[in-house]
Simulated scan of single mutants.
Amino acid sequence: MEKTKSIGRRSPKNNRLLAKLNESLYAKLLPELEIVSLPRDCDIYHHTKKIDFIYFPISSIIAMVRVLENGASPEVAAIGNDGLVGANLFMGSTDILTNKVIVQSAGFAYRVKATTAQKLFDAEADFRELVLQYIHSLFVQSSQLAVCNRFHNIDQQVCRFLLTSLDRWSTNRISLTHQRIADLLGVRRAGVSEVSASLARAGYIKYHRGCVTVLNREALESRVCECYQVIKTELDALLK
């Protein structure tokens, strides 16, 4: 994890949650923010096992995964420029042991010390309300993913995964292998490869060496299950 300088397009307001802060709150938080580069597969709380920083991604996507006894690690929530990482802190716990928090797609994030974020949460009603609303959206996302993984076919799940990734990404290219997508969805790699090949033949995506390029977003939206819209609607209502 590398510290870097904030420049131009790496504004903190590229995080939609930070952009929702009123000017007074934003001015209080801005001097405390530090930009960091997050490499893919980085476990951001690996060393401390505690929430020592709150992260606000601007061009990275973070996956919260639950590691099972058999080694599987399905995704229980994904966070990009639409939210913050470390929400447990605001529910009275700095413990992160129940989930791994890994970088799904490399990029940049701003971070603030957990102690600073907690003080702001305790002192500022507007910040507290925004954070609690976001935590509610995380609950909606996690519960909807559970429904999706249980009741919807792999074609729908892959389309939902690609679309939600695009919503948190600045381009139509997603750097993820079939194996990583399969791991996050909790399905077999062969199933993801079959769906990817089908979508590529239809001209909806292009896949090459671990990079998915979405060519026809509307077509993916026509194939996805309702879970995508439920998650998107919840976040859009919060961040509009």
Rank of each mutant, 00 (worst) to 15 (best):
Ala77Asp: 02
Leu38Ile: 12
Gly71Ala: 10
Asn15Val: 03
Met91Glu: 12
Ser142Met: 13
Ser73Thr: 13
Tyr204Asp: 05
Lys240Gln: 13
Ile174Thr: 06
Arg223Val: 01
Cys148Trp: 07
Thr94Pro: 00
Val65Ser: 02
Glu221Ala: 11
Lys49Tyr: 00
Leu162His: 02
Val158Cys: 04
Lys13Val: 03
Ile7Asn: 11
Val192Leu: 06
Thr177Gln: 08
Lys50Cys: 00
Ser24Thr: 13
Leu163Thr: 06
Thr171Val: 11
Ala182Glu: 03
Lys206Leu: 11
Asn81Gln: 09
Ala87His: 09
Phe53Glu: 07
Leu215Gly: 00
Gly86Arg: 05
Asn81Trp: 03
Thr177His: 05
Thr98Met: 13
Arg9Ile: 10
Leu163Lys: 09
Cys211Met: 14
Phe108His: 12
Leu130Trp: 04
Tyr228Ile: 06
Asn216Arg: 15
Ile44Ser: 03
Ile62Met: 12
His136Gly: 02
Phe139Ala: 12
Glu234Val: 11
Asn15Asp: 05
Tyr110Arg: 06
Lys232Tyr: 08
Tyr207Met: 10
Thr115Ile: 13
Tyr26Glu: 07
Ser198Gln: 13
Phe53Asp: 08
Ile79Asn: 02
Ala125Tyr: 11
Val65Asn: 04
Glu221Gln: 15
Val131Thr: 15
Asp95Pro: 05
Gly80Thr: 09
Phe139Asp: 10
Arg223Thr: 01
Ala200Thr: 14
Leu184Ala: 03
Arg168Ala: 07
Ile44Lys: 05
Ser170Thr: 09
Pro39Gly: 05
Ser105Tyr: 00
Leu84Ser: 02
Leu84Lys: 05
Arg111Cys: 08
Ile54Cys: 04
Asp183Phe: 00
Ala72Lys: 15
Pro12Ala: 05
Gln156Tyr: 01
Asn172His: 14
Ala237Tyr: 09
Met64Pro: 00
Val140Phe: 04
Gln118Asp: 05
Arg188His: 08
